[in-house]
């Protein structure tokens, strides 16, 4: 009985990881270089930005909302930190200022959706446009220059992107630490429980004394923090801030979350699934390029596979339901 319930409880997550394994096998067959020592570590590193935005978007989805501003906050994060550093501000201070700015956006989202009850789609669409505009004017409508090679800058770049320990890049470890912290929050703290509750039945939660406004805002703050981190990763990789950074990343976040089994309707899903979801996305990008699939076909294939993943999950869910009650 116990064994059965583990499988059924984590079914969507297991399906996602199954997908990861199948894709890896397919791509290795198509091009041996896929699992080579020069590709695999970089592939794993490329999962990080998707994982980070997937965590943020996933948690917001579990509350039954959505965050469209993720990509723009990512861009804003990259631009603010890079602009400050290029203008001589100490790297650590620049990162702190950047963090405060991004968290402020999270608060705004929380107030719009949690307090003023704006539909999340509209509210975060507004912050999305505003933040993209901010990303553009922070450096006067220019991409920033190179952040330089000072000790702190080099350390920054190594920590988030270039440095490795053995075959594992630091960036991967950083992303996993972020995942671990939020996973703990979701599964072992009151806040996490409340997040699931308001996504499942916000009225019941409110009547049971859950502070819906506070919980909604926490979710958006987490999302803003994840976008902030992803922005730092992007900026470290390029060594500069690009005004285009993060375009469409809110959608990648949705993809990573949904493939990983988190429902956009709220109340269900596990953060561990996001690891699988982000991996699927990164593997597809990398594998299709290595397999020399014509560029035009790539987007079509990625779209088809994502739709297939979600369909399989839906079919599995409704299959279980029919056998159940009256």
């Amino acid at each position: 009985m116990k064994k059965n319930s583990f499988v059924s409880k984590y079914a969507s997550v297991l399906t996602a990881f199954g997908g990861v394994i199948i894709l890896m096998i397919i791509f290795t067959i198509m091009n041996k270089n896929f699992i080579s020592g020069s590709n695999l570590p970089k592939l794993i590193r490329s999962i990080c930005p998707y994982l980070l935005v997937g965590i943020g978007q996933g948690i917001v989805c579990i509350t039954g909302n959505i965050d469209l501003s993720i990509g723009s906050v990512l861009g804003m994060s990259a631009m603010i930190s890079a602009t400050l550093i290029c203008n001589g501000v100490n790297v650590i201070l620049a990162v702190i200022i950047d963090l405060i700015a991004c968290l402020a956006v999270g608060c705004v989202n929380g107030v719009l959706v949690g307090k003023f009850k704006l539909p999340p789609f509209i509210g975060t669409l507004g912050t999305m446009t505003i933040c993209r505009g901010l990303a553009e004017i922070v450096n006067g409508n220019y991409n920033t220059g190179d952040i330089g090679n000072g000790k702190l800058q080099t350390g920054f770049r190594d920590l988030f992107y270039y440095g490795k320990v053995g075959p594992v890049y630091f960036g991967v470890i950083v992303a996993l630490i972020v995942w671990f912290c939020f996973n703990y929050m979701m599964n072992y703290t009151r806040t996490g429980r409340h997040i699931y509750a308001i996504g499942s039945n916000v009225d019941a939660a409110r009547l049971s004394g859950v502070n819906v406004f506070k919980t909604t805002t926490v979710a958006y703050l987490v999302s803003a923090f994840c976008s902030f981190m992803a922005g730092l990763v992007t900026m470290a990789a390029a060594g500069m801030g690009s005004m285009q950074a993060g375009l469409s990343y809110e959608m990648y976040g949705v993809a990573a979350a949904v493939i990983g089994g988190i429902s956009t309707l709220g109340g269900s899903g596990y953060l561990i699934g996001v690891i699988a979801g982000a991996s699927v996305w990164a593997i597809l990008q990398n594998g299709l390029t290595l397999a020399n699939v014509p560029v035009a076909m790539r987007n079509i294939i990625i779209g088809l596979i994502v739709v297939a993943c979600v369909l399989i999950d839906i079919m599995r869910r409704s299959g279980i339901k029919i056998g159940g009650k009256k």
Binding site: R193, H194, Y196, A197, G199, S200, N201, A204, A205, S208, G209, V210, G267, S268
Partner: peptide, 13 residues
């Protein structure tokens, strides 16, 4: 909350 367990619901809040 349909997605939460029995104990979760009983202790919600």
């Amino acid at each position: 909350c349909q997605h939460l367990t029995v104990a979760n619901n009983m202790f919600l809040g």
